[in-house]
């Protein structure tokens, strides 16, 4: 069976309970329960969204802050379970959502590389093989045995990006990360992503930089208040999005 799609979203909805005050103690909980004050305000972050992403596609998601971009990414990568609807993904996913999420700042870079690799599910042997490549790419060799709390945020991001992209995953999820690092490193990152695109990896990009989306993506979806406003060719969607902002 040949399946053309890498990601399939069907009528996905994500609701959040927006409780005005967060109940975090037993006493409060029971008091409110007895008083029947356990109301939650339902907040729909993603509302009935369905789309397919083809294999090998470079797919952008644009929209204003709070329109559900990151929530959609989290649903695709399996971090959030949608309240309604189904998500199917085919192949391995490497999420780049916020680089260096798994770093422990008390450990050195060397230790963190192994730790983070195992967070992404890579084996020790695999990390041994790729260790030099990661260090080479991040250009951080001389700081390898320094605890990461002494790193600058750009340096942390370099290591994070190098680890996350060390394999060629089937699906790569990129969330605003190209904004960190100096321009040389940004170029380097973009080159690597381009190499992956040529390698038949499906890439999903969220960015506020419309130019970046236009430059990299083939298809694009524009979300507004959790709903799909427009979907289709990246150029057309981006033009419409830009025009709406004026």
């Amino acid at each position: 069976m040949v399946n053309e799609n890498a990601v399939e979203l069907r009528n996905v909805e994500m609701h959040f309970n927006m409780s005005k005050e967060k109940l975090e103690s037993l006493k409060e909980y029971f008091l409110k329960l007895v008083k029947r004050q356990l109301y939650f305000e339902d907040f729909v972050a993603v509302d009935n969204v369905s789309f397919d992403i083809k294999k090998g596609d470079v797919f952008g998601i644009v929209g204003l802050n709070g329109c559900g971009k990151s929530t959609t990414l989290k649903i695709i990568s399996g971090i959030l379970e949608p309240t309604k609807g189904t998500v199917k993904t085919y192949g391995t996913i490497a999420p780049l959502i916020e680089l260096g999420a798994g770093f422990d700042m008390d450990l050195t870079a060397r230790e963190n590389i192994y730790l983070n690799g195992s967070v992404l599910g890579y084996s020790k042997k695999f990390m041994d093989e790729k260790f030099d490549e990661i260090v080479e790419f991040s250009e951080m060799r001389e700081f390898l045995d320094v605890p990461m709390k002494n790193y600058s945020s750009g340096m942390v991001a370099r290591i994070g990006f190098a680890i996350a992209t060390v394999t060629t995953p089937d699906i790569l999820i990129v969330d605003e990360i190209l904004a960190v690092g100096d321009f040389l490193f940004q170029q380097k990152c973009e080159e690597r992503i381009n190499a992956m695109i040529n390698d038949d990896t499906t890439v999903i990009i969220v960015s506020h930089s419309i130019e970046q989306i236009e430059r990299l993506c083939k298809h694009c979806v524009w979300l507004e208040k959790g709903k799909i406003k427009m979907i289709g060719d990246a150029k057309e969607v981006c033009d419409a999005y830009k025009n709406s902002q004026r």
């Binding site: 990568s77 399996g78 971090i79 959502i97 999420a101 798994g102 967070v119």
Partner: peptide, 9 residues
Amino acid sequence: APLIKKVYI
């Protein structure tokens, strides 16, 4: 929490 929010584990 920082990990759970960002990666599927």
